[in-house]
Structure formats: C-alpha cells, structure tokens
C-alpha cells in the first residue's frame, strides 16, 4: 500500500485537486487558467529537474535560487548586445556557479549542503553587486521569450516540457544517467567499478546550475524586469519539495523524473487553489508541510525494506 502511494500517490493527489477545483472553483476549466498554472510552475519544474539529478547522487543544491538571481543580473547587464547574447552569458554564469559547487563537493570533499549553502549566500551577493536594484527592460525578443505562445501553448511551458523529456532520456537511456544513479546508490562501489565519480558529480551540479540559470532568464523575461534582490528567494525549497513529493528519496540512488514534475504541479495547484479561494498564505504553507511529511514517510518505508 505504501509502495503504491509512493509510486502513484502524487498523481492521485494532483487528480484529486483537479477534481476539487473543477467542482468548486469558478472559471477553473478556462484554457487561460491552465495556461496560467503551467506558466507559473515552469521555472520550478526546470529547477526541479536539476535538483532531482543532484538528489539522485545523494546531494542537494541549495544555490539554485541565487543562480536564478545571478542569471537575472547577467541578463540585465548584457541585454545591450541583444537577448541571445544575454541568454548565453546568463547560462554560462549558471554553469560556472554549478561547476564551483560540484568541484567543492567532488574534489574538495565538502558536504553538498554546506558547499551549496556557501554558494547560496555568495552568488546572491554577487548578483546584488552586479545589479543592485530592479532594472526594467523593453527588449522585444526577451519579452517574447516570456510571453509568446506556439499553437496556444506558452513558449515557457514548451521549454519546460522539452527539458523534462531530455532529462528523462538522460536518466533512463544514457551512460551518464545510469552512473548518476549508481553513485547515489553506493559511491564506494561506483568508485571500485571504475566509474568517473568525480566528473559525474561535477557535471550534475553544472546541469543544475544551467537549468537554474535558464529558469532565471525565463522568470526575468516574464516579469519584464531583472530583480536579483528577490528573484528565486526560497525556490530551492520548492524544488526540493517537488522532488521529494515525487517520491525521489533524499538518500539518493533513484530518480523519478515524471513524478518530480507532478510534485511541482501538485504544489502549484495547491497554492493556486488556496489563493483562488482567498485563504491566507499561511494555510498553503501548513498544507505543504503535511504533504512533505507524508512524502518523506512513504519514501522512508522503501529505505527500511
């Protein structure tokens, strides 16, 4: 039973929330409403994908919110060269931050939570130094990235969906993906089996940094302003929640990509439901806490077995 909850509980919960909303929330079935929910959840989905990889190695990446802010800052700084250049620079920034975290973890041997906590503080600081206050912009390409649609589906949602497929492929079908899971499952055994453990670890954090930076650019494009001071605050917690609620254990050795996306959707729907019914935000937080505990409880069962 707990096994079923672990594997399909998040799908059931999303379904239950959808049914509730269809019945009790006015205008919920509007296409525009689904667009809103998907657009809002997309940056979290993108970050959660990287987080799932990192957690699969038994690590954690607390720096993702700050990397978003760094990407926002770099976007504002380089927008003069055009949106494409700004995007590339922002992604490079994210990759460098990820490489720094990965190196600290893999080569220096610092615990992931400590290494990325240092980055959480440092990278946010760097972003604030680069762009001390909110900057608005009018670059039409960048605004289009945040607001245009293809066949009625917002570009941001298409990007998030495509990345989900890419990461799922990476996990299931590539040497790299198998190695990530093996390292999380048993690092000593992976080392003895000749796996390039350190390289894989660094790469995982680089991917997480890249995805966080992309999410930062997309959120910035959507806001039509670069706001490194508050962009991505506490988003690492949302991403970790999505991964855990999706049934990926924090103890590593297992990655559930589709369920992670569902976990993010569940949290988005939950918060939307409470907002639409005009309940205070503190309620959202309390319900979230209950769901996280439930998720951790059912994944714990697996570890015990």
């Amino acid at each position: 039973m707990t096994r079923w909850i672990r594997d399909y509980g998040v799908y059931a919960a999303v379904l239950a929330l959808l049914v509730f909303n269809v019945l009790f929330t006015p205008y919920f079935l509007d296409a525009a409403n689904f667009r809103t929910q998907l657009v809002q959840v997309s940056p979290i989905v993108i970050i959660s994908l990287g987080m799932a990889l990192v957690i699969g190695t038994k690590g954690i990446d607390l720096s993702v919110g700050s990397v978003m802010a760094l990407a926002a800052a770099l976007t504002a700084l380089y927008l003069g060269y055009g949106a494409a250049v700004a995007l590339v620079v922002a992604l490079i920034g994210g990759a460098v931050a990820g490489a720094a975290g990965g190196t600290l973890v893999a080569y220096v041997g610092i615990q992931p939570i400590v290494a990325t906590l240092a980055l959480l503080v440092g990278v946010r600081g760097l972003a604030n130094v680069l762009v001390p206050q909110l900057v608005e912009f009018r670059n039409p390409d960048l605004i289009a990235l945040g607001s245009s649609s293809l066949f009625g589906v917002p570009l941001i949602v298409i990007i998030a969906a495509a990345l989900t497929l890419v990461v799922a492929f990476l996990v299931r079908r590539t040497t790299f993906g198998r190695q990530v899971v093996a390292i999380g499952g048993n690092r000593a055994a992976s080392e003895l089996s000749g796996l390039p453990v350190k390289r894989v670890l660094v790469l995982v954090y680089v991917i997480s940094g890249l995805l966080a930076a992309l999410a930062g650019v997309l959120a910035t494009a959507r806001l039509q302003a670069s706001d490194p001071t508050s962009l991505g605050m506490f988003i690492e917690l949302s991403a970790i929640t999505a991964v855990v609620v999706g049934g990926t254990p924090l103890s590593g050795g297992r990655i559930r990509v589709a369920s992670t996306v569902m976990g993010a959707l569940l949290m988005q729907l939950l918060s939307a439901t409470l907002i639409k019914h005009n309940l205070p935000q503190s309620w959202t937080q309390m319900v979230q806490a209950v769901i996280i505990l439930a998720a951790v409880y059912v994944t714990r069962e697996r570890v015990k077995r």
């Binding site: 504002a76 700084l77 380089y78 927008l79 003069g80 920034g93 680069l130 900057v135 009018r138 670059n139």
Partner: peptide, 10 residues
Amino acid sequence: TVAGCAKGEE
C-alpha cells in the same frame, strides 16, 4: 570581466 564588458539597455 563580467562587469567590464557588460552593456545594459539604454
């Protein structure tokens, strides 16, 4: 480097 060649919008 980052700050040096930066070029924001007008």
